[in-house]
């Protein structure tokens, strides 16, 4: 009976074949050995970002595969313009216990960003319970996950895998899909490779994946680095967590609020800026940021909410990033 009801529902829609993308993550051949170990094959390079997007405390593994024999040109300001044929993979997981990495992990999803001739395409692959394979799920999904955090506290997250369209909700510039993370500013730090530790830009340059890399390169601070200047931490935090939408060419351009690090200190960055269409997202407050007054700043109010109609970012989180909220609160308190 249950099945029949389900069939009737499906009958409401005339189904079409899915576009021609691999239905399984293993079909891409990005990894060797057991898929869940996420060991890249030769030609697939792992990378890390200095200040990553907050995604409900998920940990992430990132990989890029350039088309054979091709490279990408260095630029100091924005995401590298990877050639057609490039694939980027990003795997989201939770350690069972953050204090004990050896306790194992639950992999939630791997997103593939594939640069087709027609532009970038984002494809969500959801991992099975057995952790042996991930399957393409264009409509995304949700699942409950539990882990112990660094303080040994049990955390529960209703983890949301975005659907294909929602991917573009963040990965968009001027209506075109685009990667967000891999820029010189975000990758100018060393990482542990199979061969040892090396600066990522140096390694990419030495292996001819990145061309024309100069000696002096810009660098974000890590926003969790309490030794770094407060304003630099804030620039890095708001840039990676907000500016993919809140920039003059992004999906939130209609708000006029631009949180790209280059707008730091301007009205467009939110300081004494009135909201436009915030609705109840304003929380009854009048300005995005009121210098010295975190409790009167809409930006902080929306970061500190879990209500889907209020919270920012709109996607990629369901719970509050306590450390991020603390950082922005401290910064707003400090500015005049």
């Amino acid at each position: 009976m249950r099945y029949l009801g389900f069939l009737l529902l499906l009958g409401l829609f005339s189904y079409q074949p899915a576009p021609k993308f691999p239905t399984k993550l293993s079909d891409y051949g990005l990894f060797q050995g057991k898929l869940q170990d996420q060991i890249p094959v030769i030609g697939v390079t792992p990378y890390e970002l200095i200040s990553p997007l907050f995604s409900d405390y998920a940990h992430k593994l990132r990989f890029v595969q350039l088309p054979a024999g091709q490279s990408v040109a260095y630029n100091p300001d924005s995401v590298f313009q990877f050639p057609v044929g490039t694939r980027i993979a990003k795997t989201f997981y939770y350690p069972i216990d953050e204090r004990k990495p050896e306790s194992g992990r639950r992999i939630m999803e791997t997103r593939i960003l594939s640069h087709e001739a027609t532009g970038w395409v984002a494809l969500p692959y959801i991992w099975n319970e057995e952790q042996t394979e991930a399957y393409l799920e264009v409509a995304g999904g949700t699942s409950l996950v539990e882990f112990k955090n660094m303080q040994g506290k049990k955390q529960q997250v209703n983890y949301v895998v975005p659907n294909m369209n929602q991917c573009k909700g963040c990965h968009e510039r001027d209506g075109m899909m685009t990667p967000i993370g891999p820029s010189a500013r975000q990758m100018n730090a060393s990482m542990r490779y199979a061969h040892g530790e090396e600066n990522q830009l140096d390694y990419w340059s030495r292996t001819n994946q990145l061309t024309n890399v100069p000696g002096t390169r810009p660098k974000f601070v890590s926003y969790i680095d309490e030794g770094a200047p407060l304003n630099e931490r804030v620039k890095a935090y708001l840039d990676i967590n907000c500016a993919h939408c809140h920039n003059p060419k992004g999906p939130a351009k209609s708000s006029g609020l631009f949180l790209d690090y280059r707008y730091y200190g301007t009205t467009a960055y939110g300081i004494m800026k009135s909201p436009v269409a915030a609705g109840r997202g304003s929380g009854g407050l009048s300005y995005d940021i009121v210098a010295g007054k975190p409790a009167e700043s809409i930006l902080l109010y929306r970061m500190n909410s879990q209500d889907p109609g209020v919270m920012m970012p709109e996607m990629s989180r369901t719970i509050i990033h306590q450390e991020g909220v603390a950082l922005i609160r401290e910064w707003i308190k400090s500015i005049h």
């Binding site: 529902l9 409401l12 829609f13 189904y15 079409q16 899915a18 264009v138 409509a139 659907n163």
Partner: peptide, 14 residues
């Protein structure tokens, strides 16, 4: 199921 089928239909629409 309805929601997923509808969202999938919207994504795969020609």
């Amino acid at each position: 199921q309805f929601e997923k089928a509808l969202q999938t239909r919207l994504i795969l629409a020609s």
